[in-house]
Design a protein around this nucleic acid. Sequence first.
DNA 1: CAGTGGTCTAGACCACCTA
DNA 2: AGGTGGTCTAGACCACTGC
Lengths: 248, 248
Amino acid sequence: MSSLDKSTHIPMYIQIKDIILDEIRSGKLKPEQQILSESNLAELYGVNRLTARSAITQLVNEGFLVRIHGRGTFVKRPIVESSSSYINNFLQDMMDKGYSVKTELLSGTLLPAPSQIQSELSLQPGEHIFCLRRRRSVNFEYLVVLETYLPATLCPDLLSKDLEGRSLYEILRTDYKLELDTAQESLEARIADSLVAGELSQEIGAPILFSIRRTSLSNGSPIEFTNSWYRGDRYSFEVSLKIKQSTR
Amino acid sequence: MSSLDKSTHIPMYIQIKDIILDEIRSGKLKPEQQILSESNLAELYGVNRLTARSAITQLVNEGFLVRIHGRGTFVKRPIVESSSSYINNFLQDMMDKGYSVKTELLSGTLLPAPSQIQSELSLQPGEHIFCLRRRRSVNFEYLVVLETYLPATLCPDLLSKDLEGRSLYEILRTDYKLELDTAQESLEARIADSLVAGELSQEIGAPILFSIRRTSLSNGSPIEFTNSWYRGDRYSFEVSLKIKQSTR
DNA sequence: CAGTGGTCTAGACCACCTA
DNA sequence: AGGTGGTCTAGACCACTGC
């Protein structure tokens, strides 16, 4: 029984990976259960062992399977949402959960980069940047104020885009072909000052989760830099971490 | 010139990976620079192209290289510390930076698991847990209070270990052969209440970064659960994230 | 001992990019 | 057209685990 489609251009190891993933998600393969061996899998789908092996390797890297040398390959017990430190699309996530989400553009300006931003984004002296201040509400409550800096050369006419209706990342990807890849985020606890308290309709002294996010393209060049102030009582940040092993 | 050691049992692709990594770290290979092609690398070290390719694959997964189909493989511009969402060993990191670090055991108790902890750690009814309350100081200032829960069956006699002198993760790995693998951490901003304020020598109302961390073994079974209260003005949490692509 | 995953070879064809 | 990475095959030997 080879349910692989050799006519399409989807690689066979991806097709096998997707089949196994479906079996995990549907519950046909249960946590802790051993899956077919690499050789059996190869035989079943009529491919080379290495091809079956790459399918498994993908699923191991994504945290769905565990290999144990000499024993076999097993379905990993799921953790939370089995996501593995991916940035979640905020709007999508919230809307998926059935919340109403609104983004307001408080201000959008084009200005010469101040020196701190200039070095953060590896800009030439005199280069211009966009500074966007946005506010997001979920279920008609203010949740977060975002202050974003972007190099103007990479996204000309940004201010003419629908910044309230579309996700910024989606605009960058679709309209400017900018493939965002990785981000560094730093988080700390702060107390609301009068500016932030006003913007989030909070008391001065309320807990605020303050975040700085630096995003890069796949070649590593910085593309965006965002400061965020989240209401501490309405937002928590979730992250998956891999424990660092003493490398050999 | 094949500087590979075929006598050792270290796989060749790991040796090649380490050579390339050294060249990146030493600056012999600079950011944005193209590295040798897979075929050239294979020829240089006298191995098959697939072997050279696995070395590269590792470095791509760890974020040091970028492959571009049809163009070549390039050194990625480094981000912060080029770590890729690994848990850093807190004590080691701080001591590496030259800070004095002290851990105090405020209390260590063995008790039947309350129902919330029981479900967090997937325990049988009636199973016992250790509860450790620890306080860490850096440069003679209180930084964080940690409240950790562990299944007693997995680490008997834990309370007799040197919990103030050794890292908990190191004890679990060395003395109990527990290989921690992944963690889920959630972070939020809070305000110090009187208990936490007292333990951290802060004012009531001071900003606190509150964290819940759930750690699992490589097969996914939960092993540890820790609540932490960090001084907001002295601690920020850094994380690397991968942007989620619209999968095909 | 048989079965598993871990590594490696020598080929092959393809898709993509630059020229 | 020539070089690059992306996929795949049919073998092979090894190291580890369990019985």
